[in-house]
């Protein structure tokens, strides 16, 4: 949590990205503590690995520093804080009727799980129950998940594809010269 707070304060975006990677690693650690090893692996690989790489790549294409705006406060800031606090309060209100942490008698742990624990070895095979469920019982979700990735790929391809981009760039620079470069104040910050 301290890491997240640090991310907010950090104006060097590169450092922020690095910290968010560390944040992912830490959460992965937490997941392991809570017995979710598969999730921890994935989080470490995807959250800490791939997404950090992507962000760094993006930064290299854009800019590294966040503009200093300690001086100009916007009404959104207050609003954002209020909304966040309010939502948090509502959510905490909602936890009041939840089963306690780690309660083996919680409905979630009693209802579907026993069958998975008992039968998945025979019905599916792999000793890792998570793998069994993922691949068979909830295989459709996994199929959907693959589609999500494919969708994102198409999206990125459409957005960053070469020809279209060049054409658009020329046309937009015709209409608006400011799209070519940032305001001067930012140039300095970039260096």
């Amino acid at each position: 949590m301290a890491v997240t707070l640090a991310i907010i304060r950090m104006r060097d975006l590169f450092a922020a990205v690095m910290l968010s990677g560390i944040f992912s690693l830490l959460s992965a650690g937490l997941f392991t503590v809570m017995d979710a090893v598969d999730v921890a692996f994935t989080e470490a690989a995807v959250g800490a690995g791939i997404s950090t790489v992507l962000m760094v790549a993006t930064l290299s294409l854009t800019r590294r520093r966040e503009r200093d705006r300690r001086l100009d406060r916007r009404p959104e800031d207050v609003l954002g804080l209020v909304v966040a606090l309010l939502t948090g309060a509502i959510l905490i209100y909602g936890t009041l009727d939840m089963p306690y942490y780690g309660d083996p008698e919680a409905p979630a742990n009693l209802y579907m799980v026993p069958r998975f624990l008992e039968d998945s070895l025979d019905e599916v095979g792999p000793p890792n129950i998570v793998t069994s469920i993922l691949a068979s019982y909830r295989g459709y979700d996994t199929f959907g998940e693959a589609t999500v990735v494919f969708t994102a790929a198409i999206g990125a391809f459409l957005l960053l594809g070469g020809a279209a981009r060049r054409r658009r760039q020329t046309s937009s620079s015709d209409s608006d010269p400011s799209s070519e470069g940032a305001p001067p104040a930012d140039r300095g910050a970039e260096a």
């Binding site: 909602g94 009727d97 939840m98 919680a106 409905p107 979630a108 742990n109 009693l110 209802y111 799980v113």
Partner: peptide
Amino acid sequence: MMTGTLNIVDLGIRLVEVQGDRT
């Protein structure tokens, strides 16, 4: 968390019995 199921029909059946209006 409150019901232990994700199926829509099943959720509907089980949710009626769940106590805990706040959650």
